[in-house]
Amino acid sequence: TEYKLVVVGAGGVGKSALTIQLIQNHFVDEYDPTIEDSYRKQVVIDGETCLLDILDTAGQEEYSAMRDQYMRTGEGFLCVFAINNTKSFEDIHQYREQIKRVKDSDDVPMVLVGNKCDLAARTVESRQAQDLARSYGIPYIETSAKTRQGVEDAFYTLVREIRQH
């Protein structure tokens, strides 16, 4: 089974770092803004072998026109913010609204991801993020692309959301 996953969120929150940590098991430290990259990885989730087709997208506003296209083809979405960047957390709402509009559905598989949880300088409390996820009816997972904490959990949870859909 193949799953088309799309990673969305503001610029600099760590979308590529999360994806590369999942696929290649290493942490990319330097920031190089993405336009669009796709990665494929075969994994076993709950005993089922599946192929993850992951689209890593641009957070930069100037590429926002490309969003409709990949939102149409994606089956599930990782909505990523950084726990030390309140603005990126506030941006999640717009991504969710755009996904709902493009998919013409209120019920699209999504996982809210709070990345950079290895950093002490948190400005978005776990509780705020949990409340937001609960209001959307989606899971919330904290990750660190640096330490790998929660990385597999985030992507695998999204696959489970798609399966249950």
Rank of each mutant, 00 (worst) to 15 (best):
Y31H: 06
D56I: 00
T123G: 12
I20G: 04
G150I: 10
K4W: 02
R160E: 14
A154E: 01
T143H: 00
L55H: 05
S135M: 07
S38L: 13
G74H: 09
I23L: 15
Y3P: 06
A120H: 08
E30Q: 04
P109I: 06
D131F: 05
D107K: 09
K87H: 07
Q164P: 06
G11H: 13
C117Q: 07
R160L: 06
D32M: 03
C79I: 14
R160I: 03
T57L: 14
D46V: 06
P139I: 07
S88H: 06
Q42K: 07
A58P: 12
F89V: 08
Q24S: 15
R127D: 10
D131H: 06
E30P: 04
F155E: 00
E30L: 04
C117V: 09
V111S: 02
I83H: 15
R160H: 07
R101Q: 07
D29Q: 15
K41L: 10
C50K: 05
Q69G: 10
R67K: 14
I138Y: 06
I83W: 07
G12A: 12
Y3W: 06
F27W: 14
V159E: 03
I92T: 05
P139A: 08
E2L: 06
T157P: 03
K15E: 01
L158S: 02
K146L: 14
E61F: 15
A145R: 01
L22K: 14
G47K: 07
H93I: 14
K15A: 00
A10E: 07
G14H: 00
T157H: 11
G12C: 12
A129E: 04
K41N: 14
T123I: 06
L78I: 12
S38T: 12
Y140E: 01
S126I: 11
E97C: 06
T123H: 09
T143C: 13
R127A: 15
D118V: 03
N85P: 01
S88R: 03
I35C: 04
V124E: 12
V6Y: 07
Q94P: 05
S38V: 15
E75G: 06
L55F: 03
Q69N: 14
V113L: 12
E30W: 02
Q24Y: 03
K100Y: 05
R96C: 15
T147H: 12
R160N: 12
V111L: 06
V43C: 13
D37Y: 00
L5I: 15
Q60T: 15
V13F: 03
S16N: 00
D107T: 12
I45Y: 09
R134V: 06
K15L: 00
F77K: 02
N25S: 12
D37K: 00
R67V: 15
K15H: 02
K100R: 14
D29I: 04
K4E: 06
D131L: 09
D118I: 01
T1M: 07
G76K: 02
V13I: 15
T34A: 00
H93E: 15
N85A: 06
Y63P: 14
D153A: 08
K41T: 11
V13R: 00
Q98I: 15
S126Q: 08
D53L: 02
R160G: 08
E2A: 03
T123R: 08
I83R: 08
I45L: 05
Q98D: 13
G114R: 03
Y3H: 15
A129D: 04
D29W: 08
L51A: 10
F89Y: 08
C50T: 10
V8F: 13
L22A: 15
A129Y: 07
D106N: 12
G150D: 14
G59S: 05
V7W: 04
A10D: 09
S64Y: 11
K100A: 10
Q60E: 14
I138E: 02
L52E: 00
D37M: 00
V8R: 03
R101L: 06
H93M: 15
V113H: 00
I35Y: 05
Q98P: 01
N84A: 12
Q24G: 15
V13G: 13
I162D: 03
D118M: 01
T143S: 08
I138S: 05
Y136P: 03
Q128F: 08
A82K: 11
D131G: 05
V8E: 00
E161C: 10
E125R: 06
E48M: 10
D91V: 14
K146N: 15
V108I: 12
K146I: 13
Q42D: 09
L51Y: 09
D118P: 01
L55T: 11
A145E: 00
D91T: 12
Q98Y: 15
E97M: 13
V13M: 14
E142G: 04
G150N: 09
G12T: 13
I54Q: 00
G9A: 02
R122A: 11
T86S: 12
L5E: 01
Y31W: 02
A121N: 09
D46E: 14
R163K: 12
Q42V: 08
G14Y: 00
L158K: 01
T143I: 15
T1D: 07
G76F: 15
G47P: 05
E61P: 13
S88K: 05
R67W: 14
L5G: 01
A17G: 13
G74E: 04
T34W: 00
V111G: 02
E48K: 07
R134T: 05
I138C: 09
P109M: 06
E36W: 02
K116P: 00
A121L: 07
G12D: 14
C79S: 02
M66Q: 13
V102G: 06
I20D: 01
T147S: 12
Q69H: 11
V7A: 05
S126G: 08
C117K: 07
E142C: 03
K116H: 15
Q149E: 11
E48A: 09
G150Y: 06
E97W: 04
T157R: 11
S135L: 09
P109R: 07
Q21Y: 08
R122M: 09
S126W: 06
L52A: 06
F155H: 01
E2C: 03
L158H: 00
H26Q: 10
D153T: 07
D46C: 09
I99W: 04
F155W: 12
M71A: 08
S126K: 06
S135K: 13
I162F: 07
R127M: 07
V113T: 02
Q130N: 08
Y70I: 15
G74P: 07
Q94G: 13
T147M: 08
Y31S: 01
V124D: 13
P33I: 03
N25D: 10
E161K: 14
Y63R: 14
A82I: 04
E75P: 03
I138M: 08
D46W: 04
G76T: 03
R134C: 06
I20M: 03
D29C: 05
V102E: 12
D53R: 01
Y95V: 15
I35G: 00
T49V: 11
E36P: 00
D68G: 06
P33C: 02
V151H: 15
R160S: 10
A120T: 09
Y70K: 05
L112V: 10
K116V: 14
C117E: 13
S38Y: 03
Y140I: 07
Y39P: 00
R163Y: 05
V43L: 12
V28F: 09
V80E: 02
L22M: 09
H93L: 15
G137E: 04
N85W: 04
G47V: 06
Q149I: 11
D104L: 10
L18H: 02
K41E: 10
S38P: 01
A17T: 05
G9Q: 01
Y31R: 01
V28G: 04
A133K: 03
V151N: 08
S105T: 12
V8A: 04
Y156E: 15
H165W: 08
K41S: 11
S105E: 07
E161W: 11
Y95T: 13
L55A: 05
A145P: 12
Y39T: 00
P33S: 02
C50H: 06
Y3L: 10
V8C: 07
I35M: 05
N115A: 15
E97T: 10
V7K: 03
Q24E: 01
Q24V: 15
V44I: 10
